[in-house]
Design a protein around this nucleic acid. Structure first.
Lengths: 201, 201
DNA sequence: GGACTTAGTGAGTAATCAGTCATAAGGAGG
DNA sequence: CCTCCTTATGACTGATTACTCACTAAGTCC
């Protein structure tokens, strides 16, 4: 707060390292999503938020470390969205949509919608594909594998689903990822299509 | 034939441009699968088959053109495998495995197995992921989209499946791709797991 | 054996890259 | 005012890149 009391020359401010780190991370997700680990230069990331390229290396030890942090952020966002969706489906703020569905189905339904909303921005969607593609790198693979295991466990726990229902849920999600990556589905009808795809039309 | 009559000093032979092109294409699939479009240098590809790096550019106009050719080859192999599988399931050389299944189910079953066999080599599997990841490039995206549309059409035609059955078939395939990419599944039980995953256990 | 075509390479180029380092400059506390 | 810490950059480096070009040599036809 003391810092905020100082006069603000717009855009001239210095930020804390922590603020910058999150900025860089966000920019990194955006750039990595478009061009992948090897196709993205640290300069691209720096330019996106208007800092110098060397400063990236003060905030992250290497480009790969930044990529790994981006993976964590990506999975965190999915996990959070799933938790919120499951919580929302607990107190039915949306009445009479699927009165006949079981609680488990209702939660999966809500989580499917949450996933669609998250991926509609395309940034997370494309970054996810880049993360899978970069899995020939052992560090990347380890991290992605770890987060997948955790996501499946968490998803099973909070939805109550298991076995075929859970597998089917993730399977439809992955197909959606691919088809959305290549824009096989007309943009305009993506919403409707997504809901049908996920089996909750 | 006239060419073959000449004395062969092992390894000293010159090949036709066409032979080299297929060699290069094969090497390209292997390298691109591991390191992606941007992570693979033309030198890596050249070294793999023991030719000079500049010669690549006599056989293909650019690195991207080579990548696009690799995409075609990848989808061709899947398509061929599917066609063969459907043909095989027509004359039941394997009796009494699923006597109760409908012809459509039997064909999908056989095609699922064929896909597992193809992907077991991991080369096509990983290259596929690289192709999806490279879809921010418009030329790549166009080609992948085209081949996907064609693959879905062909698959529907030769299997007789449609709607949910077809969607489910591809969805399970994509989930398998991802989980196999990150080796989430223990290598030893991959076969059994794959069959269960595809719903034909 | 000589002329012509085709396979194949060595040497280079201009550009780009991740990462380093010395140093500037903003702000807080005295 | 001065001191000290942190934010931030400019200038650089050695390595790597896709791609070009002039050239060699192998094989073919007459």
């Amino acid at each position: 707060m003391a810092r905020q009391a100082a006069v603000k020359k717009a855009g001239d401010l210095r930020h804390t390292a922590e603020e910058r780190r999150t900025e860089v991370l966000q920019a990194a997700v955006a750039e990595f999503a478009l061009h992948g680990l090897h196709g993205t230069s640290t300069e691209m990331i720096a330019k996106r938020i208007g800092i110098s390229q060397p400063y990236i290396f003060r905030l992250f030890p290497s480009k790969k470390a930044l990529f790994l942090a981006a993976i964590d952020q990506c999975f965190d966002r999915v996990e959070t969205a799933f938790r919120n969706a499951a919580r929302e489906s607990a107190n039915p703020s949306e009445p009479n949509r699927h009165a006949t569905a079981s609680p488990v189905e209702a939660r999966l339904h809500e989580m499917g919608h949450a996933y669609l909303r998250l991926m509609a921005k395309r940034e997370l969607l494309l970054f996810q594909m880049q993360a899978y593609a970069a899995c020939s790198d052992e560090d990347v693979r380890r991290k992605v594998k770890l987060r997948w295991e955790r996501l499946m466990k968490v998803t099973g726990e909070i939805s109550g689903a298991s076995g075929d229902a859970l597998t089917g849920f993730f399977a439809r999600g992955m197909l959606m990822n691919v088809l959305a990556s290549i824009r096989l589905v007309p943009e305009k009808s993506a919403d409707k299509w997504g809901h049908e795809m996920l089996g909750y039309g």
